[in-house]
Design a protein around this nucleic acid. Structure first.
Lengths: 136, 136
DNA sequence: TATAAACTCTATAACAACTATAGAGTCAAT
DNA sequence: ATTGACTCTATAGTTGTTATAGAGTTTATA
């Protein structure tokens, strides 16, 4: 059994994050030592790594909760898992498109000003004052 | 002079957002009517549209504050504006790259499970349990 | 044994940029 | 007088952490 600092080192999650996950019921309440310190076993390490992996894929806490629940009911069909992944992938792709459009607009704006002008003549500020381009 | 609801309609910013911007000193404190209602003129409309345009480009509130300050000091060089835009563009492009990598990983993960399996055999859950791919 | 260092505990606030709510006041029309 | 639409302030919630304060525990050293 290891204490929270050790779990933090092993998993790369900060101590506060681990306590936060416990409060959010992503991980079960840990056993406590006599002095009220949290104690973790190997299973806790695995589960925390699972969560960390999910977070690295930008899955939200509620999504992870759902995955963990499914993981605990082995008889269930995994259509739910697939649907969640599909929805998540859609979201990520939508965000990429959004940022790509944004990037084009920013680059266009940036080209409207070269250095060594006063802000009176600054094309960036002038363009920002104009009505925004419709996002279509 | 128009009231906050009218300003909201004209600019497309919500009433709360306008009040929020005032509290954050992005816009000046509005004049008040006898009954303590905020009153806005055409200049307020313009400034709010400027802010909205900046936000649509994901510029942060502190960045916008800086732009507004520069806008108010016409003699200043606009190098600062350019530097801010360059930094911002870098951030956006970094985020796009990050999300693109993420998307690849998600699609790979998604392919590891077809429907109509039980979660015991679900490749997605199995892969999420394995050690995450190093982000390189 | 005293004590200091390193760790842990809980509770609470901060971050960003809003959004939502409660409870009260204002204004125009009926 | 009252209804409805609007506005006001103050406060809390959103998301996933991170940071802080003030206290208790454990371990190592003097």
């Amino acid at each position: 059994m290891i204490k929270i600092g050790e779990l933090s080192k092993v998993t790369g999650c900060s101590v506060q994050t681990i306590r936060h996950y416990e409060k959010e019921h992503l991980i079960a309440s840990a056993e406590r030592s006599e002095g009220n310190f949290r104690l973790y076993d190997e299973a806790a390490v695995e589960q925390l790594l699972f969560i960390k992996h999910c977070r690295s894929l930008d899955l939200s806490v509620p999504e992870i909760r759902q995955l963990l629940a499914l993981n605990r009911s082995p008889g269930a069909q995994c259509d739910d898992v697939n649907r969640m992944m599909d929805r998540h992938i859609e979201q990520v792709e939508a965000r990429i498109q959004e940022l790509t459009r944004l990037n084009e607009q920013l680059r266009m704006l940036r080209r409207s000003c070269s250095n060594r002008r006063t802000v009176e003549q600054c094309g960036i500020l002038r363009n920002l004052s104009a009505t925004p381009v419709s996002s279509g």
